[in-house]
């Protein structure tokens, strides 16, 4: 598999990878801090657990947004130069997957505004 193809596959699932990263971070941090009773710590006046969730959400959301825009532009550009069926397909699916991932990532950030950190 050439480097271009690897990049294409990664772009196709970029949003889902971003989600996986967000998920791992927020779950690991919450479990560790709550499990050890370290969650009372604050950073710059913010509680550490919700702050981690919010920042992880923002970062992964922005990354996914970038991926979505990029794949959308690839997808739109298809008219200018001839591309193979596989390329056009990958670009389109990438746009769809990254778009859906945006919603999913947001859903995972909601709890920071609703739930207490460790109860």
């Amino acid at each position: 598999m050439s480097g271009r193809r690897t990049g294409q596959v990664l772009l196709m699932v970029a949003g889902l990878i971003a989600w996986a990263v967000q998920f791992t971070i927020i779950y690991a941090v919450t479990s560790t801090l709550c499990g050890r009773g370290w969650a009372d710590a604050a950073f710059l006046g913010f509680e550490i657990v919700p702050m981690t969730i919010v920042s992880a959400t923002l970062v992964t959301f922005s990354a996914t947004l970038l991926a979505a825009v990029w794949s959308f532009r690839n997808h739109r550009r298809k008219g200018e130069q001839p591309v193979s069926g596989a390329d056009s397909f990958m670009n389109h699916v990438a746009t769809l997957i990254n778009g859906l991932s945006l919603v999913i990532i947001l859903w995972h950030g909601i709890s920071a505004f609703i739930l207490p950190a460790c109860a």
Binding site: M12, V13, L16, W19, A20, F23, I26, Y27, T30, S31, C34, V49, I53, V93, I97, L100, S101, I104, H108, I110, S111, I114, L115, P116, A117, C118, A119
Partner: peptide, 27 residues
Amino acid sequence: VATGFLSFGLWVHHMFATGLPKMSLSF
């Protein structure tokens, strides 16, 4: 593809009653 990924973020929903923090459950 999305199902393939997301299905790995569900496992604790079999453990909702094990007393984990609500925040963890919410993810």
